[in-house]
């Protein structure tokens, strides 16, 4: 059995801002401001990713923070599992 992947919901978009990532959900519409700085590029969400698949070179602490962040995005509907 393969682990579920995650992807940006089709109704959502994301872009880089100075503070980090800005997520937009056209269904609300609603916004999510994520103070991620340059930790994660918006392109990361362009394709299906494994739950623990992050860019190389991150510390364990950064990876944990991103795991929590991904969980929040899933809960809020910006990402979906597939």
């Amino acid at each position: 059995m393969t682990a579920a992947g995650i992807k940006l919901h089709p109704a959502c978009r994301v872009r880089q801002e100075e503070f980090g990532l800005l997520f937009y959900d056209s269904r609300g519409p609603s916004l999510l401001f994520a103070e991620t700085g340059r930790l994660l590029d918006p392109d990361y969400f362009d394709r299906v990713r494994g739950r623990g698949e992050f860019p190389a070179g991150l510390s364990a602490q950064q990876k944990q923070a991103l795991q929590n962040f991904i969980s929040t995005l899933l809960e809020r509907g910006f990402l979906r599992e597939q």
Partner: peptide
């Protein structure tokens, strides 16, 4: 909604 980020100014509108 975080007014702090909004008031600091975004790089472009989210919608128009």
């Amino acid at each position: 909604m975080s007014n702090r980020f909004v008031e600091a100014g975004l790089s472009s509108p989210v919608n128009l």
